[in-house]
Design a protein around this nucleic acid. Structure first.
Length: 270
DNA sequence: CAGAGCTCCTGAATGC
DNA sequence: TGCATTCAGGAGCTCT
């Protein structure tokens, strides 16, 4: 499930294949993604050079000469570099065709999306996003302000992209474990020391995951077709009834905000 | 306004 | 074996 580290992994992997290259053509086999892909998107992007790529939260942006392509991988989206001769398979919805190769977007669940925008910063979906977790904009002082006015539990706030972007279900559980904070703790009850630890834990776990090429539970693949290796470094996620790596107490699974949540009841007491 | 719940989708896992 | 049901989840949208 692509979260920030997975999107960043894909972006970095793509760069050497697409930056400086001209988009010859875009083939949309199935426009019915989370939002329907605009009919005129291929025409607007074709012939343009990709100047650079960037990322905002879980959105990946390809900066063209005149506008931007904005991608979201949803939860099962995968991008691969393919030779022109390789036939498209089921769920291969979009090809971005360059001279020597093509980028193929595959997304069985079709929660992904692709937009063309004259200016990515003005795209409606990118308005009102919280700070990047790996930037200094995400810090204990500012995070505390959001927490202290909230009635929700800490995990829900941590996963709220209006508060901080990019922290999905996997890394929320992992960061809370590292910071020894119970996911059900009311956000407003967090001590400042806990908030500082959590901010550090979020940065730590996201950086580690990027270094490992993301986390592959089921669908996610890097550009080169390899899985992400952070799965082997997960401490609690998807480890219900397995011993806590710190204290050997069995990891518990609960549902918070309709999301599976994993924690150690001993290390993460309220 | 804040927050809870719903919704899109398919494939894998589970149940009978 | 096979069909039906359940679950997973990013995040915008709707409703309270």
């Amino acid at each position: 499930m692509p979260e920030l580290p997975e999107v960043e992994t894909v972006r970095r992997g793509l760069d050497s294949y697409i930056v400086g290259h001209v988009i010859q053509e875009i083939t949309i086999r199935n426009p019915h993604l989370r939002w329907q892909v605009a009919e005129d998107l291929p025409l607007r992007a074709q012939g343009q050079v990709i100047k650079a790529t960037s990322r905002r939260g879980k959105y990946m942006i390809w900066h063209l000469q005149r506008g931007d392509l904005i991608w979201h991988l949803g939860m099962s989206g995968v991008m691969r570099i393919r030779e022109h001769t390789i036939d498209a398979e089921k769920h291969d919805h979009i090809d971005v065709i360059f001279n020597q190769h093509r980028v193929r977007f595959t997304d069985p669940r079709r929660f992904g999306s692709l937009f063309y925008s004259d200016n990515w910063q003005e795209h409606p979906l990118l308005q009102n996003l919280g700070p990047e977790p790996l930037s200094t904009e995400f810090n204990a002082q500012d995070f505390a302000k959001a927490l202290y006015k909230s009635q929700r539990n800490i995990k829900a706030v941590l996963m709220d992209s209006h508060v901080v972007v990019g922290v999905g279900n996997i890394y929320a559980s992992e960061a809370l474990f590292l910071a020894k904070i119970n996911p059900e703790t009311p956000a407003a009850n967090m001590t400042f020391a806990q908030i500082e630890k959590l901010v550090d834990a979020v940065k730590f776990v996201l950086n580690k995951a990027i270094q490992a090429g993301g986390t592959t539970l089921k669908d996610f693949l890097q550009i080169n077709g390899k899985p992400g290796y952070f799965r082997h470094e997960l401490q609690v996620y998807a480890k219900a009834l397995q011993p806590c790596p710190i204290c050997q107490t069995l990891i518990q699974k609960i549902v918070l905000g309709q999301r599976a949540t994993y924690f150690c009841p001993e290390c993460q007491k309220i």
